[in-house]
């Protein structure tokens, strides 16, 4: 296992859960977004926004006042499927839709927005990738059995510290997470709603997803 012996000093943790935006069981079937004062869940489960995250409260005054640049590090994410929903099967034949890229919008990024194709900076940062979902098991992370209609989750423990972005301090910020097929480089997966047994069914059956971040000050 990768093991970095560096010891973090000041740190804060942020958890983003779609459950905080809506607990509606059918949220993932909706063809329109759900939007409220907490955040937004995009139509057909293609991502979510968590609004007005108060960085001052999150970090505490001591860390907020002491630093100006922070590192947002993705440490864990988990997707929950609802086994009671039919059609939760995940297609192992359609590679395009089981190999996704995860993107983040919202923070006042310090860097990392460079777009290779255009040579310019964009407002979105490629955060990580989600691949080989067909090997996910209900037993435990790292298992090898196939995901089936009764399976419940996609889960990962991130063991690299590279999946992070740097951002400038702002009192409040929105954070948006979106997904798109890795092979096509799209930032969203909503264009093709006709896909069956692909990622759309996968996300449709989802009850929630949760992401956990470290926020680490840059000295």
């Amino acid at each position: 296992m990768f093991r970095n012996t560096q010891k973090i000093k000041d740190v804060a943790t942020l958890s983003l859960n779609t459950r905080d935006i809506s607990t509606l069981g059918d949220v993932w079937f909706r063809t329109e977004s759900i939007d409220n004062e907490i955040g937004t869940i995009f139509q057909l489960q293609s991502g979510a926004v968590w609004k007005n995250i108060n960085l001052y409260n999150l970090l505490g005054p001591e860390i907020y006042n002491k630093y100006n640049i922070f590192r947002l590090q993705l440490t864990q994410y988990m997707f929950n499927l609802d086994g009671t929903v039919s059609g939760a099967s995940f297609n192992t034949n359609d590679e395009e839709f089981r190999n996704l890229s995860m993107y983040i919008y919202g923070p006042n990024f310090y860097n990392s927005q460079y777009d290779v194709k255009s040579g310019n900076k964009k407002s979105v940062v490629h955060l990580t990738n989600i691949t080989t979902q067909y090997t996910i098991t209900t037993a435990q992370p790292g298992g090898t059995s196939s995901l089936n209609a009764n399976s419940e989750y996609f889960y990962d423990v991130n063991e690299t510290e590279g999946m992070s972005v740097f951002f400038n301090k702002t009192r409040t910020m929105d954070i948006a997470i979106r997904y798109g097929p890795m092979s096509e480089g799209r930032y969203t997966s909503v264009e093709d709603t006709s896909t069956t047994n692909g990622v759309y069914d996968f996300w449709k059956a989802g009850r929630s997803f949760i992401l956990k971040f470290n926020i680490i000050p840059v000295e």
Binding site: Q140, P141, E159
Partner: peptide, 22 residues
């Protein structure tokens, strides 16, 4: 975030800075 097996034993090792707080 924890996912445990329903009928087996399990050990989850965390990278050194995955779960830290002050």
């Amino acid at each position: 975030l924890l996912n445990i097996a329903n009928s087996n034993s399990g050990t989850i090792n965390y990278g050194s800075n995955i779960s830290v707080c002050n």
